[in-house]
């Protein structure tokens, strides 16, 4: 499974989101490749990914993509990430 963590710049928030998503995926036993990307790269990557992780503001900016877009409010709330990823994978 391919997952893209998106932020505006690709160096800060998306990297943190990727790290926490990987922790959650490992716990859930889901084999997935998580990529951190900025908005420009993400528009391309989101065409081939199954899931996009991002914040509410950026989801609006990203617009329509074929991937399922999951909005994370608190990037450090592993329970929120677990809940939303589990729901998306099922």
């Amino acid at each position: 499974m391919k997952i893209v963590a998106v932020c505006g710049m690709g160096i800060g928030t998306s990297v943190l989101l990727k790290m926490n998503a990987e922790k959650v995926l490992a716990k859930l036993g889901i084999d997935a490749d998580v990529e951190a990307a900025d908005m420009g790269v993400a528009r391309g990557a989101a065409q081939t990914a199954e899931i996009v992780l991002t914040s509410e503001e950026l989801a609006e900016e990203l617009g329509d993509v074929p991937a399922e877009v999951i909005i994370i409010k608190n990037f450090f709330d592993l329970e929120e990430i677990t809940e939303k990823l589990t729901a998306a994978v099922e």
């Binding site: 505006g8 710049m9 690709g10 800060g12 928030t13 943190l16 503001e57 950026l58 608190n74 709330d77």
Partner: peptide, 23 residues
């Protein structure tokens, strides 16, 4: 500029802002 362009998404958790731009 990053916040003006992309919005206040840098507030990544309650009470915490990660201010940054690109290399």
């Amino acid at each position: 500029d990053a916040v003006e362009k992309h919005g206040p998404y840098i507030v990544i958790a309650p009470g915490i802002a990660l201010a940054h731009s690109r290399p």
